[in-house]
Design a protein around this nucleic acid. Structure first.
Lengths: 176, 176
DNA sequence: CTACATCTGTATCGTTCGTTACAAATGGCC
DNA sequence: GGCCATTTGTAACGAACGATACAGATGTAG
């Protein structure tokens, strides 16, 4: 999973995987069947471990603005966590891909679209007033873009403190 | 250039390039010498054409906040322009790359770091007061992350109007 | 210890990658 | 028209890709 996370789907070769997992190629194919299937497995593991803080943030905090802020702060911490690649796997694992991996790209894009929708529902749920001239949809897109920008910044070497400063600026767009 | 922009450096094969340019492989190598050199050429063309609005926005508008806002609005228009791939080439062309194209990734990363620095200088230049508890550096990182997020959203199919809504939310983080 | 099912390691498949050698074709100049 | 430099298209190079065939090793049941 860490290899797919770091190098993306296309750039992670089978030899890299077998070397990193310490097994031979036939064992890998016997256990998972395919490179796409292995990626799907890795993606599920990612979402239920490293990525679980997102759905948890949205569920645990009833106030929409605080929930979004908690989510982004959690992302600032996770994206810069030391023991794994920086940034978000769902955002970065299939951005430059050839025509053969279009299915993987589409899968990740669908997940991201679901995130935007979850943001939108959360924002619209509470009775909290929205900033003037903005809708739940546009705010959801803004925070989703912030999340993607934070992932990119983490990949470019930003520290946790810098990402947290980005979060403070972003939630400043939604006055308390 | 459009092929590198759309598919990224690694995923753009020589056969795709020769097919798209309508020439044979030897002509390509005689004219540019190398795949990296061709990418560098394409990158220069991109920055002096599609990407030129950025430096122009920062130079033409003296007020830092208005300059950043103009830049982001220009990006919203450019990223969704119909006749070329969505998003920003400097942000997306080398995100998933193997070890052979690490030099290209580093080059783009350096350009992005220069953008952050240009933002920071512009923000610090005017006498405009900063939002409470933020520095020119953190604001520059925030707007840079916004730009990268907008590029990702454009790649995911966001429209110009949606990106403009993101810009309105982002500049709202910096009260007039 | 023997027999059998499962797993692992080596070697290889066909394909595509970036790159180049070579020959045919093209263009200007006399 | 004839000559030469240049450009082009065809074919091929070694390497690495995703994916497998096959033989040897391993573990368990009797």
């Amino acid at each position: 999973m860490l290899l797919f996370w770091r190098h993306g789907y296309d750039a992670t070769s089978i030899s890299l995987l077998t070397e990193g997992m310490g097994i031979g190629a036939p064992s890998l194919y016997a256990a998972f069947g395919d490179k796409r299937a292995l990626f799907k497995e890795a993606l599920d593991r990612y979402m239920s471990s490293y990525g679980s803080f997102m759905v948890r943030s949205l569920q645990d905090e009833p106030d929409p603005r605080a929930a979004i802020e908690n989510l982004l702060l959690g992302a600032a911490a996770m994206f810069t966590g030391g023991e794994h690649p920086p940034g978000c796997m769902i955002i970065t694992a299939a951005t430059n891909c050839g025509p053969d991996s279009a299915a993987v790209e589409k899968r990740l894009r669908t997940i991201r679209a679901g995130t935007v929708r979850a943001f939108e529902e959360k924002i619209a749920s509470g009775g909290r007033s929205l900033p003037k001239g903005s809708s739940a949809h546009s705010l959801a897109l803004f925070f989703s873009a912030t999340l993607q920008g934070m992932s990119a910044q983490a990949r470019d070497g930003a520290t946790r403190e810098e990402l947290e400063a980005i979060v403070r600026a972003a939630v400043g767009a939604w006055p308390a």
